[in-house]
Write a protein that binds this DNA or RNA. Structure first.
Lengths: 148, 148
DNA sequence: GCGTAATAGTTGTTTTTGTAACTAACAAGG
DNA sequence: CCTTGTTAGTTACAAAAACAACTATTACGC
């Protein structure tokens, strides 16, 4: 007999925590800017790392290129970003935020910053650091589960 | 100027960790039993908590009832569970695993158990406990973000 | 009882996602 | 140059999720 507990199973716990903690923030970017999850993510990548290509975002965010493509298209029609074709390699487009995009990013980043603090308010600074460190490790790991 | 970092934003980190850690396990229940996420969740609830109603699963798993309904329908056609109409309240149906359902659960539970151990192999027992405790707290919290 | 509301669960319709196939541009070997 | 392969990004179609409307049954107020 195993003492396995679904609600202590890490992937399950992570999903529950991720969903619960995403809800309130989602409300904000959806209500204020009509954005979806992938759009917000692209916006934040451009806001934080400056102009980059769709591929670069794809790699960094671990998002499939079709998701990026659609998110970029929507952000473009809403005038949050613009594309600039690379002159040397004409397959590539560099994406950069417009004024409106930057404004939305600044607004949402401030919300995210406060929200993050709120979520961690029950933890000591060192506990919070440790938690994020563990999560980053899990996020970075190539899963792979050896023949189970 | 804020020192906000997207990759340190808790909801983002949680999502990245959840997705990465779910991948390998998803491969198993998909490949072996053709199940989707909601189906293994329902299977695990019935396996772990015994017969229960769709509503009870909905509440406990925080899954919308339409997701439960469709997952149950699929698990039923694949003979992993059966329904039993409640005699006192004929709206209610009690769901219970069949032999095949129990077997699938036992198999997947064993995989999950080993996988969980593998995911946590880099942490001390007390760190692992603390991590799960924090995640459970986050998962349980009613988000709510006060006017940001 | 009778009308209204609430609960259990399903079904239909619209969005969003996933997967694969596609175009276009560059790179490398001969 | 020309074939073959690779990379950047889009588009088309199938699968799944979200959301709203629906049926059936029970509970409640009067």
């Amino acid at each position: 007999m195993s003492n396995f507990d679904l609600e202590q199973f890490l992937p399950y716990l992570l999903n529950q925590a991720a969903e619960a903690s995403s809800l309130a923030f989602q409300q904000v970017y959806k209500d204020r800017y009509g954005m979806l999850r992938n759009e917000w993510r692209v916006l934040f990548h451009l806001g934080q790392f400056g102009p980059m290509t769709a591929s670069a975002i794809s790699t960094r965010a671990r998002l499939h290129k079709t998701k990026i493509s659609r998110a970029v298209a929507k952000l473009e029609t809403r005038r949050f970003l613009q594309r600039r074709r690379d002159e040397d390699d004409r397959r590539v487009e560099h994406l950069h935020l417009t004024g409106a995009g930057r404004a939305a990013f600044d607004d949402l980043r401030a919300v995210a910053d406060r929200y993050d603090a709120q979520l961690l308010s029950g933890l000591s600074a060192s506990d919070a650091r440790a938690l994020k460190q563990h999560l980053a490790t899990l996020a970075a790991a190539e899963p792979g589960l050896a023949r189970m």
